[in-house]
Amino acid sequence: MKQWIIDETQQNERIDKVIVSLHGDTSRTHVQKWIQDGHVKVNNQLVKANYKVQEEDTIALEEPEVQSTEIKAENIPLDVVYEDQDVIVVNKPRGMVVHPAPGHYTGTLVHALLYHCNDLSGINGEARPGIVHRIDKDTSGLIVAAKNDHAHEHLSQQLMNKTTIRHYKAIVHGVLSHKKGTIDAPIGRDQKDRQKMAVTDKNSKPAVTHFTLEETFQAYSYVTCELETGRTHQIRVHFHYIEHPLAGDPKYGYKKTLPIEGQALHAETLGFVHPRTGEDCLFTAPLPADMVGLLEDLRKQD
């Protein structure tokens, strides 16, 4: 059982939102299900998800046991960059979905991991075993999965504390005017299109992306991006916001773009502290062939 006592800074916040911020390893939807199923009490009383907490309230969470996954393992080849008893780092190909979701019930990274690994952490439930963070379907590159709950909690805390290293390579429309820059703009659900994210002040969270210009072409720029936060579609939304959307981006980009299936975005570098040894781990993955080809074509055009 986990318990927290509310202080004055959290007063009048919804309990589901408070638990997400305190727990750190779950989604608001997951918390609302816990509340609905009676796993959360305030001062020994059951409450609803819209309950507004008060100073000195005692919240008690009895997390339900994680059910074993019913997703069937699939023999899908994996590009494993590193693996030990606690973590596995994979170079995910463009086009692979990370975990099962509507429209994607087979062929995901989770299905492949279940075949490759003897066990995975259960914190994120039966649909997302081992998954600590995600990258988009059409973004290639490095992702780490946890093989046990201790590793999962440790890695999740590093993400929350912004101590992980995450560098991406991207090809964007237009020629950037600065060698270095920071995009500091909050991201939330797009009010006009719920399938998209947007820079907005409404129901948003802070989002910060640092970028370095690597190379320029006639109508494109090649950049390195460093994530300080990890919001959904963050790099794609931020570069759309500054009017330099990613090449090939079907959701936030231009119709006329470079020939690539999905956005030209690659998670090149991933660094974290190992959850068991405490050692600094740093991994890199080379650009996928399609992005290498795009850069070669752009250089020939100049």
Rank of each mutant, 00 (worst) to 15 (best):
T284Y: 07
L155P: 09
M1N: 06
R94D: 06
L298Y: 05
P250W: 02
T139L: 10
G248L: 05
L294N: 11
D302P: 00
G38A: 13
K162R: 15
T163N: 11
A151R: 03
A170M: 03
A267V: 10
A170R: 03
S204I: 10
T224C: 13
T284R: 12
N43C: 09
G188C: 09
E65F: 05
H178Q: 15
D86Q: 13
A267M: 01
D280K: 14
N12G: 03
W4G: 06
C225M: 09
M291K: 06
E83A: 13
P100T: 04
K180G: 04
V208G: 07
P259T: 12
R299S: 11
A264R: 05
K41N: 09
V40R: 02
C117P: 04
D84M: 07
V110I: 09
E268Y: 03
H266T: 12
G130S: 11
K251H: 08
H266W: 03
E8N: 14
I135C: 07
H39R: 13
G38S: 13
S140C: 12
E65G: 06
Y51A: 00
D119E: 15
I143D: 11
L176S: 08
N161A: 15
Y241D: 13
H238C: 11
M96K: 09
G262L: 00
Q85T: 11
P245E: 03
D84W: 10
P245S: 06
Y254M: 13
S221G: 11
Q85R: 11
D290V: 08
H154W: 04
